[in-house]
Amino acid sequence: MGRYVFSRFAQALVVIIIVSIIVFLIMYLVPGDAVTVLAGPDPTPELVEALRVMLGLDQPLPVQYGKWAIAAMQGDLGTSPIIGRPVSELIWSRLPATLELAVAAILVASVFGILVGVVAAQRQGTWVDATITAINSFVLSVPNFWFGILGILCFAVWLGWLPSGGRKLWSDGPLLALSYLIMPAIALALDSIAMIARLVRASLLDELSRDYVTVARAKGVGQSRLMRRHIARNAAIPVLTVLGLRFGQMLGGAVLIEAVFNWPGLGRLTVEAIKNRDIVLVQGTLMYFIVIYMTVNLLIDLSYGLFDPRVRSSVGGKV
């Protein structure tokens, strides 16, 4: 197991290094940089040159990358020349909002996704199953933010039950904070619910058709024990994978949902950075996103062992 963890960790590290080079380079391929913004319209060549030296843009690319990477490893992602504050501090300040939204959304998605999936599988072929499948397809084909706007219209504008946007801290009162959180969390979770419900249904039906299920029934295992003791664990793996991937994405910030609900998370920070051509900040948020995503992925891979004993014993040798 130790060797497996190590090799997966090494793989993740290689990916992060490669992606960091791409992230670093890509910003130089995009026309326009921070200098263009800082120098204002019609700058003198001297001002441009001075700004370039100040930002270190006159040095060869590998040197720039090296400096940037070493600093990044120490948690120093540079200072945003536009906002004038360290990037890590900016990310840190937005992280609680993003984390709160992501955790809430993934909880909603897993609870409802699994519930709906189980119901659909148990009623396979009936009108319940057909209705669920139709609703799932609809939800998956409509973008999340549309539901967000619809939600604001219904619950904020017409009914006035919930605030239309913004965020309140839990220290301001849990109920108040929750009233701000609930709509963006559900809007963000909707397509995940649909996707997980589909997956749970397929996964359960797949397991139900296996020989070991007939064997278990033949020795007198009843329906509920069959589901709990035999099927759940086997059906969990694909569901777990998708849940993890979704959570990884949500931790990077939900750009559109945050925009619709005016949620002060990382998604909006990234959008603003791109709008301002704030290269340093864009690089920083992208790197944060990649590291988080890889970490979540790694954790999912390692958790397979908890569910499947074959993974536990085979990971010693081969990768």
């Binding site: 070991y212 064997v215 033949a218 086997n234 569910f307």
Partner: peptide, 16 residues
């Protein structure tokens, strides 16, 4: 009454 099935590779639950 109990049964023994054909394929022992698939008739056991892999996670138990």
């Amino acid at each position: 009454i109990s049964m023994v099935f054909q394929n022992p590779m698939t008739s056991l639950n892999p996670t138990m």
